[in-house]
Amino acid sequence: MTLLRAMGPLRRPGAGVAGRSRLSGMLRLGLGLVPITVLVFLYQQLAVSKSRPRIFPQVGDVWDAFYEILIGHGELGSSYDQIMVTSLRIVSAFAISFVIGIVIGVAAGRNKLVFSFVENLVWVFMAVPSVVWVYIMIVGLGLNPVVPPLAVAATVMPQFIVLVAEGAKSVPDDLGEMARSYKTSTWQRFTELFLPYLVPYIIAASRTSFATAVKIMLVAEVIGTPSGIGFEVSYWDGKLFMGPVIAWGITMLLMGLLVDNFIFSPIERRVSGWKSKPIDAAETMGAVI
């Protein structure tokens, strides 16, 4: 769901008509839950039939493991410490790709020379799997706590750059010409024309990047660190206990959902509030003009 939302500002048909959209929202939620429920049910049947609770934990076992995480228990220390460590790594990886992504993305989108310069580099970075980055960096930096955030940033940054560059490239020339005709300063053009135009692209890039960062961080931690959620996963995997592994996966999923719904969504609603204004004026005035 996080990823789907991150794909961009998809407008639901009928959005804007308050009653209808609320109804279809509930309907959508219901429809969305059906496949997940079916999947959980099928898995439960499989787990029961196998009757090997460590490898195929039943839904109840997974819930128990998840409950342990919720109340902060853990064989490797408080689960909240692990969540904190991983969150911090995700946030720093995201921050690195956010800042560098915007700077390089804008430069590449506005300047053909910069674009040609970074184009191939971006493709190379895109093609290298995050796991490879982890190993490369471990060789270079040792088992250093900065390795996972750096590896994740290296993996996530290219898509950030590409999205922002696309946005920067598509700022319409005619608006720039209009702004120059009104003798606007470079600063006014940047803050009132360029940036507002770019914001939806930056938000879309942020959402995809964050969702990817959450996924990849787990891999990076499994390989490269003695702490964090990834370490928990590899620990329980080593002991052949799948319940906690799944429970930690669910925890990460929830973290991603929380951030998307409570941070990115409100920001997007705020900056693109003008889009949701109803189109009533044109309709009522259509007859007059």
Binding site: L175, M178, S181, Y182, K183, T184, Q188, P196
Partner: peptide, 28 residues
């Protein structure tokens, strides 16, 4: 001089008033 273009070339994230202010601010 002031320029009216073929298409309105308004900034869609600004209200009509905001668009006019954009010009006023630019022209100082």
């Amino acid at each position: 001089t002031a320029y009216v273009f073929q298409s309105a070339r308004l900034l869609k994230w600004k209200t009509l008033r905001g668009n006019v202010e954009f010009g006023l601010k630019g022209l100082g």
